[in-house]
Design a binder for these strands. Sequence first.
DNA 1: AGGAATTTGTGCGTATGTATC
DNA 2: AGATACATACGCACAAATTCC
Lengths: 239, 239
Amino acid sequence: MLTNQKSKKLPLYIQIGELLHREIAAGHWQPGERLPVESELAASLSVAVGTLRKALAKLEGDGLLERRQGSGTYVKRAPTGTAIYQFFHLELLGGGGVPRADTLAVSMVQSAEVAQQLEMDYLEAKLWSIRRRRYLNNLPVAVEEIWIDHRHSDSLSADDLHESLYMHYREVFDFWIGRVEDRIDCAIAPDWVTEQLGLPAGTILARVERKGWSNSNQVEEFSRTWFDPHKCRYFARWS
Amino acid sequence: MLTNQKSKKLPLYIQIGELLHREIAAGHWQPGERLPVESELAASLSVAVGTLRKALAKLEGDGLLERRQGSGTYVKRAPTGTAIYQFFHLELLGGGGVPRADTLAVSMVQSAEVAQQLEMDYLEAKLWSIRRRRYLNNLPVAVEEIWIDHRHSDSLSADDLHESLYMHYREVFDFWIGRVEDRIDCAIAPDWVTEQLGLPAGTILARVERKGWSNSNQVEEFSRTWFDPHKCRYFARWS
DNA sequence: AGGAATTTGTGCGTATGTATC
DNA sequence: AGATACATACGCACAAATTCC
């Protein structure tokens, strides 16, 4: 017998939230633009202000909107300039350092483990692998491998890539990373990593695994960064 | 005791949330137990139901409570949520884990290096050193040493300390930690650390160095946490 | 099985506080 | 200082899920 999925009505605030999400994704409100004030928007959508607020709060939590008391509700802007490094959290041991990266290799790979991290439908899906070396004040401090869905681009070569991968995403792939999760530990680094850093094979290095979500809340990248703890460290601020 | 600045009034729903958090942490409601119904709880706290609901929703988001429509609000048995302890950022490799800590030793020490981190006037100043072992789901995963200004307390013993050190600060020392900075790398752990974790001397472990600022923006604590990367890892979310 | 009571979820409206412009 | 816009807090009515008889 065919499945008889009961079409359940979603709560109004969810429907409103998805509607607004679609509007923003379609570009009806540009990044950085201010949305109509709550009372107007609620009236135009024929819902109570409280219901609209609940929808907006959810979108803010997803990183799609920014709400500022006394000012307004804004579509989150794509990061520009130095803000492109807002998610870069390595620093020299003495603090700071100017980040730079160069691309070592770009290749098409297949990895069920990574596909799962990217929440892809097919674990056999093809992925772009990008291997890069990272510098702080021109001192090589880390090596990383980044995986993205191959469907973002038919062909990809080291020459194509911007130095800032996040800038590349935004300008070429038409999305940007709005949220990431990092997990840090240490382990024996693969040989190709230690080679690039001029360290003996089998060296234990610190490792950062990252999952990155786009502005439309899709998992878009997974990466693994190995850094030399004698040269740099990961930093975090919480409040 | 050191003086601290007058605190700004927090929103009622935050106050209520923290109150309930403390009640649960203190075990006044056992894991799995159902809380009083919203209307009663709100009445007993002299707040509107909506305000209480906002507090409960936040605690649910933090993984401390579970709310079931038609049934009730329950204290979560094994919270996997990440924000049970706002500034505790270790998790098991599979994710989550209930944090616990016990105190190994409390002593008065002197360390110019740490005094500098604490931005103290006299580098020869005396400090309290608190050494603790940390657990996730009762599995020992990390060992840490925390230093604070000795002037916070004339005498300090392991028995005096709350299990949550931050709660101890707030209730006994009359300040609270509102912001921290973590720096993560890996290094050879001291012998007293590897001993406590049952690892061979000279093992390389992941290390978190933390500086904590109080509500009045003074550096109040410095700590060094060593964790076993085979058992847990540090996590961070950015947006 | 079924219906009533209980409990949380949703939605609405309003008044007041607070940050920003 | 005043206007604007979001944040907080209150209260009420009804819907949906669960529990109990």
